[in-house]
Every structure is written in C-alpha cells, then in structure tokens.
Design a protein around this nucleic acid. Sequence first.
DNA 1: TCACACATGAGAGCGACTATCAGGTAGGTG
DNA 2: CACCTACCTGATAGTCGCTCTCATGTGTGA
Lengths: 198, 198
Amino acid sequence: MSGLRERKKAATRHAIQEQALRLFLERGYERTPVAEIAEAAGVSPMTFFRYFPTKEDVVEHDEYDPVLARLVVARPPDERPLAAVGAAVGTALAALGERELETVLVRTRLVLSTPALRARRSGNESATRELFAGALATRAGVEQPALTHRVAAAAAVATLTTALETWVDEDGRRHLAVVVQEAFGALLDGVSPGRTPG
Amino acid sequence: MSGLRERKKAATRHAIQEQALRLFLERGYERTPVAEIAEAAGVSPMTFFRYFPTKEDVVEHDEYDPVLARLVVARPPDERPLAAVGAAVGTALAALGERELETVLVRTRLVLSTPALRARRSGNESATRELFAGALATRAGVEQPALTHRVAAAAAVATLTTALETWVDEDGRRHLAVVVQEAFGALLDGVSPGRTPG
DNA sequence: TCACACATGAGAGCGACTATCAGGTAGGTG
DNA sequence: CACCTACCTGATAGTCGCTCTCATGTGTGA
C-alpha cells in the first residue's frame, strides 16, 4: 500500500501544511493567500484545495478525539460522567511529550488569535461534544445519549476549552495536564459547595 | 433624534433582514447570494454590507446577553455560580411570550442547520462566556474573573446550547424554560450523585 | 436658502472556492 | 519491456463574499 504515489501524496500534503504554518506564523493567517502557500509548497492553488477542502483545514488535526472517546468508554461505570471525562483527558495528556506539547501550544495560539480559525474550532467542538456524549452513553450501556450525557459532554468540552485558553495565556508555563485538572476541579467548585480536592 | 433619515435607515435595515430570512428559509442560506437579498430589499449589494458587515450578521441578534449578565450579577452571592446562571436564565426565559419563542425557534433552527451560521454562533458563544465570567466575578466582588468563574460560565453556556439544541429537536413542543431547567438539573446529575430535585 | 454631512450606487478588484477539460505519470498486465 | 488504464495535476473560467474609491443625490442644521 506504500507505492511511489502514496509517498508523493504524503510528501505533498506535508509540504503544504509545513509551508502554510510557517507563512501563517510569519505574516498572519489573513494576510497569507492560498496561492502563496501553494507556490511555497511547489504546487498549484488547485492542488492545495484537493488536499485541504478549505484554507482553515490546513491548520487543524483533531486526531485526539477518537482516542479520548475510547478512554471515556473504558472508565469505571460508577464514576460520574464529568469525572470520567476529566480522568480520560488526564490520562491522554500524560502521554504527551515535551515536543508534542510545544506543537500544540504554537498551533493553539494561532487558532485562538485568528477569528476565522477560532470560529471553526468552535464548530468542531460540536462534533467533539457528540462524540463524548456517545461515549458516555456507551459506557452507561444505552444506545442513544440521554440529556445527562449530552450536557455532561458539553460541559466537559467547555471546561477543556477554558483550560486550553488559560494554558495559552500562561504561555504553557505549567503542564497542560495540571491546568486541565485544575479546571475540572473549578467546575466542581462551581456546582457544589463541599468538594474533596484530589 | 428620529428624523426622516433615521426612519429610512431603520426601514431599510428591517427590509433587508426580512427578505434575507424569507429567502434563507425558501432556498437555503448557501444558495441565496447577497445580491438577491439586496435586490429583493430594493437596495444595491453595497448597501447590504453597509448595514450588515457580513452575510452571517443578518441572521443574528444577540440582544439577550447583556440582560442575562445583569440578572446574574443580581443573584444572591451565596448561590453557587452555575445555579446563579441557571436561575438568571430561567428568569429571563419566563419573560418571553409565545410569538417571541416562535421567532427564536425558527431562527435557531436555521442557524443549527447551516454550518456557516453554526460556526459563527459558536464563535459568539466565546464572547458570551467572557460576559458571564465577568458577571460572576462582579457578583463575587472581584475585578478579574477567576478560573472558577470562567469554567462555570463556559459550562453554563454549554448547558444552554445543549438545551437549545434539544428544544429545537423537539420542535419546541415543551417551553424552552422547562428544557433549560432540565438541562441544568442534568448537569448537577453529571457531577454529583445525590442531588435534590427542584 | 445655502452649505455641509451622509447615505447610496457604480465599477473595479481581491481572495476563497468550484467545475470542466486536457495532459502527464504511476501501476498492474500482457 | 511495452501498454493501457486509472489517477494526480494544472490551466482556465467562473461564482460569491467582501472591500475600496469615486461621484451623485438627498436630508439636515445654520
């Protein structure tokens, strides 16, 4: 399955993404036309859109969501939904190395500071919510996610987003996992008065 | 302050919005060019953009947020943040009449079923989050919103969004206030096991 | 009534994105 | 090794959202 064609495609895709990110960081997202990215990557503008349906797509990855969903399903069933998601996220983040965190930081900063990318990110969160809601339903042994599952999923994603924003604001000084854990703790604080800190 | 000029502007603005909504519902958002909206409203395409900076702006209102923020600040300070936001929203929704709810239903349905509008809506939620976080901070008597306030605000907005989606899925059969209350109850369920139903 | 401010329109133009068509290259087949 | 097919690519043209500049006409305030 790894003929010359496949390798060329992978290389082209990688080149486009690399040049795009470089130009975005240098000159800003809005001031970088697709034509320039294509030229820098040595392809035609057409080819850019064959690899990435929109200009925004070249920034996003969203490869973590399915992993997270599986971790959520695997959490013990007596755990409260939000605690389950929080723990699953904690587990996933612990596996991230220094370099990966740096990449995430740079890209997240770019996304948060670019309205168009921010809006798209928000749009994607809706898919993440549904994925988490499905995972919580599966864990509970039911077909369709109940309102509880959907609300818990939505709150968890919102908490995650807030944690990410905080982390970027801090320039990534603390480990992301720490900030996320603190955010989930703050969520409990915001709901019930007496909580048991971890 | 209500000279002929002002009234003309208000009329033009209203005409554009009315024709836009009509055409969007008839032919769909994506298949309705701004030029057609402008023609239907009897103005030039240029004028459309003078009144609404983007095509998406013609759909959104977002007039409720400031009201909600004020209601949040007014909640008793011993209430937990999420309960405070939930109660504030409940109060605001109780004031909505049959016709207003119908309008909200139609527009929300359009927004949720149109990716571009959905993304924009999500983008706006970020502003709503900050507004709520500020309100919670003010209520707590501090200048800058703490992480607790920001997380609570984010979770509350996420819960609200989920409630709105549920409400639209149900074609507005139950009153929106009921669905929202149920959603906030579900959030408590998702966090702590024993809760006292209202 | 006069002069200014402002709302509007016309035209050109940019950038994201799409559809169609033609040419070249990889891959399996004889 | 030659060939044929399938697919990747590019050129062209076009649509649509959105902006800029400039000129004109219409309210408004003096």
